[in-house]
């Protein structure tokens, strides 16, 4: 994985799938390998990019589902995308 920005001091890199509702941050990298998604890592990565999840994009978790806080509605720059936390685990944010 290539990384564009070094980790910001005081903030830890973590998967978006594990973040709470209301979380705001930036995408640090996409790491689809070893995820539990039904998709192959390469394919999942492409689909995430096609929905605008690229390094540097601003993200915010706007809403979450009632059961298991899943799925989540994420603001990505100026569009909103719904996805399950399982797939969002591949999006690393700071």
């Amino acid at each position: 994985m290539f990384r564009e920005s070094p980790p910001v001091a005081g903030r830890v890199r973590k998967p978006l799938g594990g973040a709470e509702a209301g979380f705001r941050g930036r995408i640090d990298s996409i790491d689809a390998a070893g995820g539990s998604s039904g998709l192959a890592p390469e394919e999942l990565e492409r689909r995430l990019i096609e929905l605008g999840f690229v390094e540097g994009a601003a993200v915010e978790i706007l809403h979450e589902g009632i059961i298991g806080h899943d799925p989540i509605a994420v603001r990505v720059d100026n569009s909103t995308v719904a996805l399950r936390r399982r797939e969002a685990m591949s999006i690393l944010v700071i």
């Binding site: 998604s37 192959a40 995430l48 909103t80 995308v81 719904a82 996805l83 399950r84 399982r86 797939e87």
Partner: peptide, 11 residues
């Protein structure tokens, strides 16, 4: 077949 993920834009 892998289960298709739920990923869609909320317009």
């Amino acid at each position: 077949e892998p289960s298709p993920p739920f990923m869609l834009e909320l317009p």
